[in-house]
Simulated scan of single mutants.
Amino acid sequence: MAEGKLILHGVASSTCTGRVLVALLEKGVEDFELKVVNVRKGEGKTPEHKALQPFGLIPVLQDGSLTLFESRAIIRYIANKFEGQGTPIYGSTPVEKALVEQWLEVEGQNFNAACKECLKYAAASPVDQEKLAQAMEKFSKVLDIYEARLSDTQFLAGDFFSLADLSHLTTGWKLFDKYKQGVVCFEGRPHVKAWWAAISSRPAWKRVLEMI
């Protein structure tokens, strides 16, 4: 593949593809193509797609000779490649970068898993209220840790918006806003509520919502 426009394979409604779209827009990258691959329709299992992503998942980013998958790896790449433009989302010192990485790990290993467990029940029809309550109880323990952290800093890695915050937007939006569990999650957690209001009001995220 020749050097030129970035190609992102995925679909905007996917939480992982959405994560990459936000990163691109925060960095001011407009010259990219979103090539729709709908895994729910089996499009991830085609030989053409599996040549790019052997597990048949999305997203995949192509940048010249580079083919990259796993959304958090992709957003790190975007932050580094376009370091000199857009929002500085990866930190500017070794300490800041380390804290961004730490909270990206927290998001991937703790927040994301617990949030998706809640979504499994919140998005069901009919909703199993007992199982949802149990999942929310586990998730609340994660949110309590976030409340403590955000009582000291405006954002997770410090007083600057970063990949660590950005990575929460897609999954968090589904639970907090789409399935209206934010009221429960934010009760007694004013710093989490303020943090979510700040990151979910960013123009780049609003543009991604328009694509969904």
Rank of each mutant, 00 (worst) to 15 (best):
L99E: 00
V100Y: 00
V100A: 02
V100C: 02
Q102L: 14
Q102R: 14
Q102W: 02
W103R: 01
W103L: 05
W103A: 03
W103Q: 03
L104M: 15
E105V: 07
E105H: 15
V106D: 08
E107Y: 11
G108D: 08
F111H: 10
N112Q: 15
N112C: 04
N112M: 03
A113I: 15
A114M: 06
A114R: 09
A114N: 09
K116M: 12
E117K: 11
C118M: 03
L119V: 05
K120G: 05
K120P: 00
Y121V: 02
Y121F: 14
Y121W: 11
A123T: 13
S125T: 10
S125P: 04
P126G: 08
P126E: 10
P126C: 09
V127Q: 14
V127S: 08
D128K: 12
D128I: 07
D128N: 15
Q129G: 11
Q129R: 15
Q129F: 12
Q134N: 15
Q134H: 14
Q134F: 08
A135R: 02
A135H: 04
A135P: 01
E137N: 15
E137G: 06
K138F: 10
K138N: 14
F139P: 02
F139A: 10
S140R: 12
K141A: 14
K141M: 13
V142K: 07
L143V: 14
L143E: 06
L143F: 13
I145D: 11
I145V: 14
Y146T: 10
E147C: 07
A148Y: 07
A148F: 10
S151D: 06
D152P: 00
D152V: 03
D152F: 03
Q154H: 07
F155L: 04
L156Y: 07
L156R: 02
L156Q: 06
A157M: 03
G158W: 00
D159H: 11
F161T: 07
F161K: 10
L163E: 05
A164G: 09
D165F: 03
D165N: 12
L166F: 11
L166R: 03
T171A: 13
T171N: 10
T171W: 06
G172D: 06
W173G: 01
W173D: 09
W173H: 14
W173S: 05
K174P: 00
L175D: 02
L175P: 02
L175F: 05
F176H: 11
D177N: 08
D177P: 04
K178W: 09
K178G: 01
K178F: 12
K178V: 10
Y179R: 05
V183A: 14
V183D: 13
V184E: 12
C185K: 01
C185E: 00
C185Q: 02
E187L: 10
E187R: 07
G188Y: 04
G188C: 08
G188L: 04
R189C: 04
R189K: 15
R189F: 06
R189S: 08
